[in-house]
Design a protein around this nucleic acid. Structure first.
Lengths: 129, 129
DNA sequence: GTAAACCTTGCTTAAAGGGGAAGGTAAAGA
DNA sequence: TCTTTACCTTCCCCTTTAAGCAAGGTTTAC
């Protein structure tokens, strides 16, 4: 399929998909007839996977590492599993931090009466320290 | 306190803290004697809060909005509460996506035997689609 | 009194794309 | 068949969010 379709299926912009091809993160075949990039189903899966990881601040290089879990057939599965577990730890850390942030906002919202009075616990909680 | 201490307390780099002052996101007083920035305890709280939000891809402008929840005393608490609840929704969405990503990796790791054979479900799951 | 540690502004660079120009290609309708 | 419309290409510059570094002022510490 062409880049436009791959872009839609992976929920990334065409620009982003092209960028990933240029930096050889997800590099499709390229017709040397028309010059069009030709994406496979597998390419789309990789794009989707990268898209998800990027949403959580995994850098492009980290995404490259995550993708290598799938791509490098010569790697022992032991090593693949090790790296995967490490990434899961990182994600768990992110999850905890995100929950904390949510709790912080949630606490403020729950203690705010929400009427029209200008004084509000959301403001107070902050200025009190 | 000076920027170095504020940086340590907020767990941001000096560069970042200075940048936030320049774009007027968290703007401390500045001595017109030495030119040094003078951070208050409240400034540090704001910095920490921004740091947390930035970790989850809230843009600088969104952080500015989040901070305004605290700062703008003229805003009705109704509006403050509304915006806060919206941000909580956004965070909940991020949480779900992050959990999905974790599950995806976790599934792969759990189904990987982890010995030294080069074939591994982590690889298979991907290439099979 | 000077060296180390900390501060300032200003300039450049990086990562991860977005915008848009100039031009080739492909599919669909008149 | 011709043309319009929708895609595709490369190339170049712009943006955001800082990090790095230089040149120089300040404060602390021995």
């Amino acid at each position: 399929m062409n880049i436009g379709r791959a872009s839609k299926l992976s929920d990334l912009t065409v620009k982003t998909v092209r960028y990933y091809a240029n930096i050889e993160l997800v590099k499709p075949k390229q017709s040397n007839f028309t010059g069009y990039r030709e994406y496979s189903e597998e390419d789309v899966l990789k794009l989707r996977f990268v898209g998800k990881a990027r949403k959580f601040n995994f850098s492009i290089e980290e995404c490259r590492e995550l993708l290598s879990l799938y791509e490098n057939e010569n790697r022992s599965s032991k090593e693949v599993k090790k790296i995967t577990l490490e990434k899961i730890c990182e994600i768990d850390k992110k999850l905890k931090e995100l929950k904390d942030l949510r709790n912080e906002l949630s606490y403020l919202a729950n203690n705010c009466h929400g009427d029209d009075r200008p004084n509000c616990p959301i403001l107070d909680a902050f200025s009190q320290k």
